[in-house]
Design a protein around this nucleic acid. Structure first.
Lengths: 105, 105
DNA sequence: ACCAAGGTTCTACTTGCATCGTACCTCAAC
DNA sequence: GTTGAGGTACGATGCAAGTAGAACCTTGGT
Protein backbone atom coordinates (compact mmCIF):
# COMPACT_ATOMS: atom_id res chain seq x y z
CA UNK A 1 0.00 0.00 0.00
CA UNK A 2 2.84 2.34 -0.77
CA UNK A 3 3.71 2.84 2.87
CA UNK A 4 7.01 4.28 3.98
CA UNK A 5 8.04 0.99 5.57
CA UNK A 6 9.92 0.62 8.85
CA UNK A 7 12.69 3.19 8.72
CA UNK A 8 14.15 5.05 11.65
CA UNK A 9 13.55 8.75 12.06
CA UNK A 10 16.15 10.96 10.38
CA UNK A 11 17.44 12.13 13.75
CA UNK A 12 17.55 8.62 15.15
CA UNK A 13 20.03 7.21 12.69
CA UNK A 14 22.84 5.73 14.76
CA UNK A 15 26.40 5.56 13.63
CA UNK A 16 26.91 2.12 15.12
CA UNK A 17 24.03 0.66 13.18
CA UNK A 18 25.17 2.35 9.99
CA UNK A 19 28.71 1.08 10.34
CA UNK A 20 27.53 -2.43 11.18
CA UNK A 21 25.32 -2.41 8.13
CA UNK A 22 28.15 -1.20 5.92
CA UNK A 23 30.59 -3.73 7.32
CA UNK A 24 28.96 -6.45 5.25
CA UNK A 25 30.27 -6.64 1.67
CA UNK A 26 26.87 -7.35 0.12
CA UNK A 27 25.18 -4.48 1.86
CA UNK A 28 28.08 -2.19 1.13
CA UNK A 29 27.78 -3.07 -2.52
CA UNK A 30 24.11 -2.15 -2.53
CA UNK A 31 24.85 1.22 -0.99
CA UNK A 32 27.74 1.87 -3.31
CA UNK A 33 25.54 1.19 -6.31
CA UNK A 34 22.83 3.45 -4.96
CA UNK A 35 25.30 6.23 -4.27
CA UNK A 36 26.51 6.09 -7.84
CA UNK A 37 22.99 5.98 -9.25
CA UNK A 38 21.04 9.03 -10.27
CA UNK A 39 19.68 10.90 -7.27
CA UNK A 40 16.50 9.40 -5.84
CA UNK A 41 16.46 6.52 -8.26
CA UNK A 42 14.35 3.62 -7.14
CA UNK A 43 15.51 0.06 -7.54
CA UNK A 44 14.23 -3.39 -6.71
CA UNK A 45 16.03 -5.75 -4.37
CA UNK A 46 16.90 -8.13 -7.17
CA UNK A 47 18.48 -5.47 -9.36
CA UNK A 48 21.76 -5.50 -7.47
CA UNK A 49 22.81 -8.93 -8.61
CA UNK A 50 23.40 -10.30 -5.15
CA UNK A 51 24.23 -13.97 -5.30
CA UNK A 52 22.11 -15.00 -2.34
CA UNK A 53 18.88 -16.78 -1.60
CA UNK A 54 15.95 -14.45 -1.59
CA UNK A 55 15.37 -14.82 2.14
CA UNK A 56 18.95 -13.80 2.83
CA UNK A 57 18.64 -10.93 0.39
CA UNK A 58 15.48 -9.77 2.11
CA UNK A 59 17.30 -9.94 5.42
CA UNK A 60 20.08 -7.67 4.21
CA UNK A 61 17.62 -5.07 3.00
CA UNK A 62 15.90 -5.20 6.33
CA UNK A 63 19.19 -4.41 8.02
CA UNK A 64 19.81 -1.51 5.65
CA UNK A 65 16.29 -0.24 6.25
CA UNK A 66 16.48 -0.48 10.02
CA UNK A 67 19.86 1.17 10.10
CA UNK A 68 18.33 4.10 8.24
CA UNK A 69 20.36 3.75 5.08
CA UNK A 70 17.53 3.10 2.67
CA UNK A 71 13.83 3.61 2.32
CA UNK A 72 11.79 0.83 0.97
CA UNK A 73 8.41 1.37 -0.60
CA UNK A 74 6.07 -1.56 -0.76
CA UNK A 75 4.60 -1.78 -4.23
CA UNK A 76 2.92 -5.09 -3.58
CA UNK A 77 4.62 -6.94 -6.28
CA UNK A 78 8.06 -5.47 -6.15
CA UNK A 79 9.62 -3.05 -3.68
CA UNK A 80 11.22 0.30 -4.37
CA UNK A 81 14.53 0.78 -2.64
CA UNK A 82 15.88 4.31 -2.38
CA UNK A 83 18.96 5.70 -0.68
CA UNK A 84 18.32 8.17 2.13
CA UNK A 85 20.92 10.48 0.75
CA UNK A 86 19.71 13.69 2.32
CA UNK A 87 19.37 12.33 5.83
CA UNK A 88 22.71 10.57 5.62
CA UNK A 89 24.66 13.47 4.14
CA UNK A 90 23.23 15.72 6.79
CA UNK A 91 24.09 13.43 9.65
CA UNK A 92 27.30 11.81 8.42
CA UNK A 93 28.84 14.16 5.87
CA UNK A 94 31.33 12.44 3.61
CA UNK A 95 30.28 8.91 4.44
CA UNK A 96 28.32 8.16 1.29
CA UNK A 97 30.98 9.68 -0.90
CA UNK A 98 33.46 7.41 0.77
CA UNK A 99 31.42 4.29 0.16
CA UNK A 100 30.65 5.30 -3.39
CA UNK A 101 34.27 5.86 -4.25
CA UNK A 102 35.44 2.39 -3.31
CA UNK A 103 35.92 0.09 -6.25
CA UNK A 104 34.83 -3.19 -4.75
CA UNK A 105 36.64 -4.15 -1.53
CA UNK B 1 61.81 -3.69 21.98
CA UNK B 2 60.07 -0.76 20.31
CA UNK B 3 58.99 -2.71 17.25
CA UNK B 4 56.35 -1.47 14.87
CA UNK B 5 54.04 -4.38 15.75
CA UNK B 6 51.74 -6.18 13.33
CA UNK B 7 50.06 -3.53 11.26
CA UNK B 8 48.96 -3.82 7.66
CA UNK B 9 50.72 -1.92 4.91
CA UNK B 10 49.27 1.53 4.22
CA UNK B 11 48.02 0.43 0.82
CA UNK B 12 46.53 -2.76 2.19
CA UNK B 13 44.05 -1.16 4.53
CA UNK B 14 40.65 -2.57 3.63
CA UNK B 15 37.42 -0.69 4.03
CA UNK B 16 35.57 -3.79 5.21
CA UNK B 17 38.01 -4.40 8.02
CA UNK B 18 37.97 -0.73 9.00
CA UNK B 19 34.18 -0.57 9.10
CA UNK B 20 33.97 -3.84 11.03
CA UNK B 21 36.46 -2.50 13.53
CA UNK B 22 34.55 0.74 13.89
CA UNK B 23 31.23 -1.03 14.26
CA UNK B 24 32.10 -1.94 17.82
CA UNK B 25 31.29 0.83 20.34
CA UNK B 26 34.41 0.27 22.43
CA UNK B 27 36.73 0.39 19.48
CA UNK B 28 34.92 3.35 18.02
CA UNK B 29 35.37 5.17 21.29
CA UNK B 30 39.09 4.55 21.21
CA UNK B 31 39.35 5.92 17.70
CA UNK B 32 37.17 8.90 18.49
CA UNK B 33 39.39 9.79 21.44
CA UNK B 34 42.51 9.42 19.33
CA UNK B 35 41.06 11.58 16.56
CA UNK B 36 40.38 14.34 19.03
CA UNK B 37 43.77 14.07 20.64
CA UNK B 38 46.74 16.10 19.56
CA UNK B 39 48.26 14.79 16.37
CA UNK B 40 50.53 11.78 16.85
CA UNK B 41 49.89 11.57 20.55
CA UNK B 42 50.70 8.23 22.08
CA UNK B 43 48.44 6.61 24.61
CA UNK B 44 48.34 3.39 26.56
CA UNK B 45 45.55 0.85 26.23
CA UNK B 46 44.26 1.52 29.71
CA UNK B 47 43.99 5.26 29.23
CA UNK B 48 40.70 5.02 27.37
CA UNK B 49 38.67 3.94 30.35
CA UNK B 50 37.24 0.86 28.72
CA UNK B 51 35.23 -1.15 31.20
CA UNK B 52 36.50 -4.54 30.10
CA UNK B 53 38.80 -7.27 31.31
CA UNK B 54 42.34 -6.75 30.17
CA UNK B 55 42.30 -9.74 27.86
CA UNK B 56 39.23 -8.39 26.09
CA UNK B 57 40.79 -4.95 25.94
CA UNK B 58 43.91 -6.43 24.41
CA UNK B 59 41.74 -8.23 21.88
CA UNK B 60 40.07 -5.00 20.76
CA UNK B 61 43.40 -3.29 20.23
CA UNK B 62 44.54 -6.22 18.18
CA UNK B 63 41.52 -5.79 15.94
CA UNK B 64 42.23 -2.08 15.57
CA UNK B 65 45.86 -2.83 14.81
CA UNK B 66 45.12 -5.52 12.24
CA UNK B 67 42.51 -3.37 10.54
CA UNK B 68 45.18 -0.71 10.11
CA UNK B 69 43.59 1.91 12.31
CA UNK B 70 46.32 2.18 14.91
CA UNK B 71 49.97 1.54 15.39
CA UNK B 72 51.10 0.01 18.59
CA UNK B 73 54.61 0.32 19.89
CA UNK B 74 55.80 -2.21 22.41
CA UNK B 75 57.51 -0.41 25.26
CA UNK B 76 57.85 -3.51 27.37
CA UNK B 77 55.96 -2.21 30.27
CA UNK B 78 53.22 -0.29 28.58
CA UNK B 79 52.33 0.04 24.93
CA UNK B 80 52.12 3.18 22.85
CA UNK B 81 48.98 3.37 20.77
CA UNK B 82 48.92 5.90 17.95
CA UNK B 83 46.32 6.67 15.32
CA UNK B 84 47.39 6.10 11.71
CA UNK B 85 45.94 9.42 10.73
CA UNK B 86 47.96 10.00 7.61
CA UNK B 87 47.34 6.61 6.07
CA UNK B 88 43.66 6.73 6.91
CA UNK B 89 43.04 10.26 5.70
CA UNK B 90 44.79 9.44 2.48
CA UNK B 91 42.82 6.30 1.87
CA UNK B 92 39.44 7.17 3.37
CA UNK B 93 39.16 10.96 3.38
CA UNK B 94 36.56 12.22 5.80
CA UNK B 95 36.21 9.03 7.77
CA UNK B 96 38.20 10.02 10.82
CA UNK B 97 36.55 13.42 10.96
CA UNK B 98 33.23 11.64 10.94
CA UNK B 99 34.15 9.36 13.81
CA UNK B 100 35.69 12.16 15.78
CA UNK B 101 32.63 14.35 15.49
CA UNK B 102 30.23 11.86 17.03
CA UNK B 103 29.38 12.54 20.66
CA UNK B 104 29.06 9.02 21.96
CA UNK B 105 26.37 6.98 20.25
C1' DA C 1 64.65 -8.34 45.36
C1' DC C 2 60.04 -8.00 45.33
C1' DC C 3 55.70 -6.60 43.87
C1' DA C 4 52.17 -4.43 41.18
C1' DA C 5 50.51 -2.91 36.81
C1' DG C 6 50.19 -3.08 31.70
C1' DG C 7 49.93 -6.44 27.68
C1' DT C 8 49.71 -10.75 25.24
C1' DT C 9 48.28 -15.46 24.39
C1' DC C 10 45.52 -19.49 25.06
C1' DT C 11 41.33 -21.67 26.08
C1' DA C 12 36.56 -21.72 26.77
C1' DC C 13 31.95 -19.95 26.70
C1' DT C 14 28.22 -17.40 24.83
C1' DT C 15 26.07 -14.43 21.93
C1' DG C 16 25.28 -12.61 17.47
C1' DC C 17 24.93 -12.89 12.64
C1' DA C 18 24.83 -14.65 7.83
C1' DT C 19 22.72 -18.16 5.51
C1' DC C 20 19.06 -21.01 3.77
C1' DG C 21 14.52 -23.63 3.29
C1' DT C 22 9.77 -23.39 3.79
C1' DA C 23 5.48 -21.24 4.00
C1' DC C 24 2.85 -17.35 2.88
C1' DC C 25 1.41 -12.87 0.65
C1' DT C 26 0.73 -9.66 -3.43
C1' DC C 27 0.45 -8.54 -7.88
C1' DA C 28 1.42 -8.89 -13.15
C1' DA C 29 0.98 -11.58 -17.13
C1' DC C 30 -0.73 -15.03 -19.66
C1' DG D 1 -7.81 -17.98 -12.45
C1' DT D 2 -3.67 -19.96 -12.42
C1' DT D 3 1.09 -19.47 -12.50
C1' DG D 4 5.39 -17.28 -11.52
C1' DA D 5 8.30 -13.72 -9.68
C1' DG D 6 9.42 -10.38 -5.96
C1' DG D 7 9.30 -9.87 -0.82
C1' DT D 8 8.54 -11.00 3.98
C1' DA D 9 8.45 -13.83 8.27
C1' DC D 10 9.78 -17.77 10.87
C1' DG D 11 12.76 -21.54 12.36
C1' DA D 12 17.10 -23.89 12.20
C1' DT D 13 22.01 -24.12 11.56
C1' DG D 14 26.89 -23.09 11.42
C1' DC D 15 30.46 -19.94 11.97
C1' DA D 16 32.40 -15.54 13.60
C1' DA D 17 33.03 -12.41 17.28
C1' DG D 18 32.89 -10.49 22.12
C1' DT D 19 33.91 -11.75 26.62
C1' DA D 20 36.51 -13.41 30.54
C1' DG D 21 39.86 -16.24 33.40
C1' DA D 22 44.44 -18.08 33.95
C1' DA D 23 49.31 -18.30 32.94
C1' DC D 24 53.09 -15.70 31.57
C1' DC D 25 56.28 -11.81 30.35
C1' DT D 26 58.28 -7.12 30.96
C1' DT D 27 59.34 -3.12 33.48
C1' DG D 28 58.89 0.73 36.99
C1' DG D 29 58.72 1.65 41.77
C1' DT D 30 59.43 0.66 46.41
Amino acid sequence: MTSTASGVEPGEIELGAVLSALADPHRRRVIRDLVNDADGSERSCTSFGLDLSKSTRSHHFKVLREAGLVHQVDRGNRSGVTLRRGDLDRRFPGLLALIGSQSSD
